[in-house]
Nucleic acid binder design. Structure first.
Length: 512
RNA sequence: GCCCCUAUAGUCUAGCGGCCCAGGACGUCACCCUUUCAAGGUGAAGAUCGCGGGUUCGAAUCCCGCUGGGGGUACCA
């Protein structure tokens, strides 16, 4: 499948913002190809991070750092890159400008490129005229055939210029995409793309070709949106006399309503998913299955399993719609069934401290509240879809005093407020004398009490649940009571009795 | 407009000529379990395999056209 040589792939984002979920997917597939598929075949598989910062206008300070943080959080660790270095340094394009310049000069010398002195105004004018005439917009190659003396005059005038690729005017170019097979282009339809901008920085077209060659990239795996420029890149390799890496265009992620995924639909940045309590494993798993499948039924692929299973051959060519609901399901699967309770507790801690429910501290077993949070994690893991759900679910265990009760909730359906009051008083007394650590024993006692009071067990349990948690939903009542602890259970039962005594009359007739 | 990619249920997908009047998953609905909420279990609804032509004894699977969706058309990547 893979040619028998070292596999070197790269993820090449530009530092113009945070890591987009689509970029994360591209990075993931590159990483899986190098660290998974290639290495499984006994080849060296190298995953390279290259920063494409050639657009000086769109540069965002700190973006590169953010990109790296996001990749690291996902566990997509690169072997070579701007921070770790490597045999092909530097890995930041802004630090490689001489290389591009040299390549551009080579191309000009070989007749494959030319300097273009057209102003933006002229380009603009040409475009509008073309459109008015119903022609395809594009550069009219005005400077391609400039007479030598005119060219010399432009040079002498010291006007700013760009370098354009002299695209062959006839013939056809075939791009052999590993996922979709050959794609044939008529060269007439191809443009004389700008290679070097007037500020001296290269465009993507030049930089990516030069760098992929210099960095000995074996396989280009990039987003689908690059397909239209692939023939020009192919021609560039030929003009430079270089062998082109194998190439694959990965399917794009679409928004639920169609089109590009944007803020309007929900989160799009990896960082947002992180703060919303998604696990990197779940995000990776979901992303992997957006365009790749292993067989007809396997869904759960933790990172190690992805590395064992991924093959480029099973990547689909068609774009896929992002489904937030399914991502949530994956996240829940990991929280509920995949990661350990200790692991979960560690991951939940930052969210709890963020909500002020536990002190700040290390997100591991050395945190002073770890023991308690671990216990709560075991109790609640089946109920968490995201880590960010934890504060809400764990709040009543961690806080000293509950918010004021809604007295109506303390009165079970079809029970008179006065009877409910009596029941709560009796339950409070019984619980005070019970060993809450003995969940089964407590349950036996409470069931007996319900009988005595002429209530269904569920009715009594709900009243106690509301009294001790302030909510109508909780884990199993007796595990909950145990986790709350005898002291707080006692206080809360007393407060509930008090609340019902003071407001009970307001509840009369309100429950049916 | 032009160039290109793509097309199985609302969504992600399996399928690479007969095993498919199409399998799995999310979502939806019902039931079971049950002290609530979850989790779990069982089941149901949901696809004339976008449409129309071919090829073939036989097509979701191969070919052509159309249509829908998407991308590109910058001195942005």
């Amino acid at each position: 499948m893979i040619a028998g040589r070292a596999v070197r792939v790269r993820f090449a984002p530009s530092p113009t913002g945070s890591l987009h979920i689509g970029g994360a997917k591209t990075a993931l597939f590159n990483w899986l190809f190098a660290h998974g598929e290639a290495r499984r075949q006994g080849l060296t598989g190298t995953f390279i991070l290259r920063v494409e910062d050639t657009d000086r206008n769109r540069l965002v300070p700190g973006a590169e750092e953010g990109l790296r943080d996001a990749l690291r959080w996902l566990g997509l660790i690169w072997d070579e890159g701007p921070d770790v270095g490597g045999p092909a340094e530097p890995y930041r394009q802004s630090e490689r400008t001489e290389t591009y310049l040299a390549a551009a000069e080579d191309l000009i010398a070989g007749g494959h490129a030319y300097r273009c002195y057209c102003t933006r105004d002229r380009l603009e004018r040409v475009r509008t005229e073309q459109q008015a005439r119903g022609e395809a917009p594009g550069y009219d190659r005005h400077c391609r055939a400039l007479p030598p003396e005119e060219r010399a005059a432009q040079e002498a005038a010291g006007l700013p210029s760009v370098v354009r690729f002299a695209t062959p005017r006839d013939g056809e170019t075939v791009v052999r995409d590993m996922i979709r097979g050959p794609i044939t282009y008529q060269n007439v339809n191809l443009e004389d793309l700008v290679l070097l901008k007037s500020d001296g920085y290269p465009t993507y077209h030049l930089a990516n070709v030069v760098d992929d060659h210099e960095m000995d990239i074996s396989h280009i795996m990039r987003g689908d949106e690059w397909i239209p420029t692939a023939p020009v890149h192919t021609l560039l390799y030929a003009a430079l006399g270089w062998e082109m890496p194998a190439i694959a265009h990965l399917p794009l992620i679409l928004a639920p309503g169609g089109g590009k995924l944007s803020k309007r639909h929900g989160s799009t940045a990896v960082e947002e998913f992180r703060t919303q309590g998604y696990l990197p494993e779940a995000l990776l798993n979901y992303l992997a299955l957006l365009g790749w499948s292993f067989d007809a039924s396997t869904e759960l692929f933790p990172p190690e399993r992805l590395l064992e299973s991924f093959t480029l051959a099973r990547v689909s060519p068609s774009p896929a719609t992002f489904d937030y609901a399914k991502l949530r399901w994956f996240n829940q699967q990991y929280i509920n069934h995949v990661i350990s309770v200790d692991d979960l507790a560690g991951r939940v801690l930052p969210f709890l401290s963020g909500a002020g429910l536990v002190p700040d501290g290390p997100a591991d077993a050395s945190h002073p509240a770890f023991g308690q949070v671990r216990e709560l994690s075991a109790l609640l893991k089946d109920r968490l879809e995201t880590l960010a759900d934890a504060p809400e679910h764990m709040r009543f265990f961690l806080v000293d005093e509950l918010d004021p009760y809604d007295p109506a909730l303390l009165v079970p359906k079809k029970v008179e407020p006065l009877d409910a009051l009596a029941a709560l008083e009796a339950a409070g007394t019984a619980l005070a004398g019970a060993d809450l650590a003995d969940e089964a024993g407590t349950e036996v006692k409470m069931r007996a009490l319900a009988d005595e009071l002429g209530l269904k067990a569920g009715q009594l349990f709900m009243a106690i649940r509301v009294a001790t948690t302030g909510r109508t939903q909780s884990p199993g009542l007796f595990a909950t009571l145990r986790a709350i602890g005898p002291e707080r259970v006692g206080e809360r039962m007393a407060r509930a009795v008090d609340a019902l005594r003071r407001h009970g009359d307001e509840v009369v007739g309100a429950d049916d």
